[in-house]
Simulated assay, not measured.
Amino acid sequence: MRADARKNYDHLLTVAREVVTEQGADASLRDIARKAGVGMGTLYRHFPKREVLLEALLRVSFDELTARAGELEGSASPAQALTSWLREAVTVAHRYRGAIDSMVAAIADTESALHASCQTMRAAGTRLLVRAQEQGVARADLDGTDLFGLLGALAWLRDQPALAPRADHLFDVIAGAILTRD
């Protein structure tokens, strides 16, 4: 990528992160381009679809969650490792309000720009779940798809103004339902 194109790409991502954090995943692409000081053609040249932009925004966070899962795999408490990672994953999903719909759909859609990133993140969480199950501290009837679904539900709860004040309590309820003992 040429230096000027790379500069535009990086600037667009920075601005998009701000706008999407403020307005949610359905933020106007026109607003992003306008705030970045570029035309729609430049935006679409780098991000031909909204999903491609979301993938670029989420990939960094998903990569961090994957690395974090690796760190947590070595912790003494598989239950704490799983709940810590899940809490961090919910925070990431909530940061990009409304992106959870695209994330959940991307798991099943191999053509989705988000598919690989979501699969990698789900695999990282699954490793923590399996470790907790092997230690007998997590329900044996859950799998990575279930964990990803619960992550989506918890992020959705945080997105709901009427439920947001209860989100931490509801997280604890769900975490308690996942774990068999701490």
Rank of each mutant, 00 (worst) to 15 (best):
Arg2Asp: 11
Asp4Glu: 15
Arg17His: 07
Arg17Ser: 08
Asp26Val: 01
Ser28Glu: 13
Ser28Pro: 11
Leu43Met: 02
Tyr44Arg: 11
Arg45Leu: 09
Phe47Val: 04
Lys49Asn: 07
Leu53Trp: 03
Leu53Ala: 07
Glu55Arg: 06
Ala56Leu: 09
Arg59Asp: 08
Ser61Glu: 15
Phe62Trp: 02
Thr66Glu: 04
Arg68Lys: 02
Leu72Ala: 02
Ala76Pro: 05
Ala76Lys: 09
Pro78Gln: 05
Ala79Tyr: 09
Ala81Asn: 08
Thr83His: 14
Trp85Thr: 04
Arg87Ser: 08
Glu88Thr: 12
His94Gln: 02
Arg97Ser: 00
Ala99Gly: 00
Ile100Ala: 00
Asp101Cys: 10
Ala108Arg: 06
Ser112Val: 01
Leu114Ser: 05
Ser117Gln: 08
Ser117Lys: 06
Cys118Lys: 00
Thr120Ile: 07
Met121Asn: 02
Met121Phe: 08
Ala123Gly: 07
Ala123Glu: 07
Ala124Ser: 11
Ala124Gln: 09
Ala124Leu: 12
Arg127Val: 00
Leu128Tyr: 01
Val130Asp: 09
Arg131Gln: 09
Gln133Pro: 07
Glu134Asn: 13
Gln135Pro: 14
Ala140Glu: 14
Phe148Lys: 06
Leu151Gly: 00
Ala153Ile: 10
Leu157Cys: 10
Arg158Asp: 00
Arg158Asn: 00
His169Ser: 13
Ile174Asp: 07
Gly176Arg: 13
Ala177Asn: 15
